[in-house]
Amino acid sequence: MSGSGRNARPVVEGLFDFDADGVRLLMSGCAACGADFFPRAPVCPYCAGSDVADVTSAGTGATLWAWTAVNAAPPGYGGSVPYGFGVVELPGGVRIVTRITVADPAALSLGMPMRLTVDPVGIDDDGTEVVAWAFAPAGGVEGRA
C-alpha cells in the first residue's frame, strides 16, 4: 500500500476503510434488482428499492476499464500531480471511478488485473496523511511496482 501509515485518515468517511488486512470499498446491494452500487445509499439508484444491504468489496478480480492521467491540479485538490484516474470493473460488472496509482497511460492496458489500495491526496495541518481509495496494477508496472 502506498499510503497506509497508521495515522492516515480517509478523505471521506463511509466510502472505504483500511487496516493491516487491506482496503475495502463499502458498497450496497439491492435485494429487489440485485444491483451492487457505490457509494452506499439507503435507496437503490437503479430501481429505487429500499431493501438494500451493506456489501464490501476488497477489489478482488478487478480489471482496468478506462484510464487517463491528470497533469495539472484541479480546483480543490492539494495532492501531487500527475496522478492516474480511471474506472475499474469488478467481477459482476460494477464499474468504479477511482484514482490509479500509475500516472503513465501508456503503461496501462484494457483488462489489466488491478488491486485495491489507498493513495495519498494531501496532509492535514497536524501532519496526518489523507488518503483516497485507489487501484494499482495487480502485477505491478515495470519500474514502478
Binding site: 478506462a66 491528470v70 495539472a72 484541479p74 480543490g76 495532492g79 484516474f85 480511471g86 491526496v121 494531501g122
Partner: peptide, 30 residues
Amino acid sequence: GMIRSSFFEPWVEEAGLSPAPAYFALRAQR
C-alpha cells in the same frame, strides 16, 4: 481554467475525482 463546481462535495475535489477534462478523456478513450 478548470471550473470549480458547487456540483461536487468538497471531498470529491480533495480526492482528485472532480476534473471535467479527465472524464472527457475517459469518454474519448472509450
